[in-house]
Design a protein around this nucleic acid. Structure first.
Lengths: 154, 154
DNA sequence: CTCACTATCTATAACAA
DNA sequence: TTTGTTATAGATAGTGA
């Protein structure tokens, strides 16, 4: 999406890193907004910049997402017993991913040979990261669903 | 980004809506993941599908974002007094946006004439939605910063 | 950190399965 | 709700201010 294809890994140059962050955060907000409007979904986003500054986004609002989570997105969303099963599945997935992650690391270091091109390897790594993110988040949701939940002091 | 340019508004056909949701959620996760990896940012995402099913994503993990928010992203991020000022600014911005929103609605209904092309109008509307999302979220962050915060029961 | 420019790379709308 | 294909619309890397 730019003058050149880039690898998805930490941008070394700090200045360039901030520029990239600024541009892509904007892009992410836009995507989140579009998803919400096009599909009637609700999306909340919370994060921290490279320098540790918080940023957030919500559509139709951040608060709506929190409220929906508190009132409907928690325990009631899952059938009885379902949570335990899902947790087991997630545990297995995490194990598998850990194995794959280690494998890739060793390929990277040349310890293990591979038939994959650098480009293909990059894709695998990126996919793995995404999967990790989803699984991790799913775990968190399940955890929160089991032990309710975010409480907002007020 | 597809065969045709589309307006950013609720997809009428429900089947198509779900397809769009499925694809764009995937895209959003990818963008969030890339932002995190490229810039060393932490990103957490929580939302609900059109049908009310929760989804979440985190990079490097959902939990990391929550933890950082609890420990560093809250009150300490803002200087004393800064919060009050920011809240005032946000209040003003919200008012302005409300006005603009109403204006656009009336333009849509033909009550107010406009020199803008449909395309330009669409852009303005989309930008406004994004701005709303950011401002709303900023408000939430400030609110949470003032009245600390998410508490995770355990 | 933001803004503008523009050559390229990517995400995705429409369609079918 | 998910997946694959293909033509396009849209995002963004590199660069300079």
């Amino acid at each position: 999406m730019g003058r050149k294809k880039i690898e998805i890994k930490l941008v070394k140059n700090i200045e360039a890193r901030y520029v990239t962050f600024s541009k892509r955060r904007k892009g992410l907000f836009k995507k989140a907004s579009e998803l919400s409007i096009l599909c009637g979904a609700r999306v909340g986003l919370l994060g921290f910049s490279p320098s540790g500054k918080p940023f957030a986004f919500g559509s139709p609002s951040f608060q709506v997402v929190i409220d929906e989570y508190l009132h409907e997105g928690g325990v009631e969303t899952f059938e009885n017993g379902e949570i335990g099963n899902l947790n087991e599945e997630l545990k297995d997935l995490k194990k598998e991913i850990k194995v794959e992650d280690k494998k890739i690391e060793e390929v990277d270091k040349g310890i293990i040979p591979t038939d994959l091109s650098l480009e293909e390897l990059q894709k695998v790594k990126t996919s793995l990261k995404e999967l990790q993110g989803e699984i991790e988040a799913a775990s968190s949701l399940l955890l929160l669903a089991k032990k309710p939940v975010f409480i907002i002091q007020g």
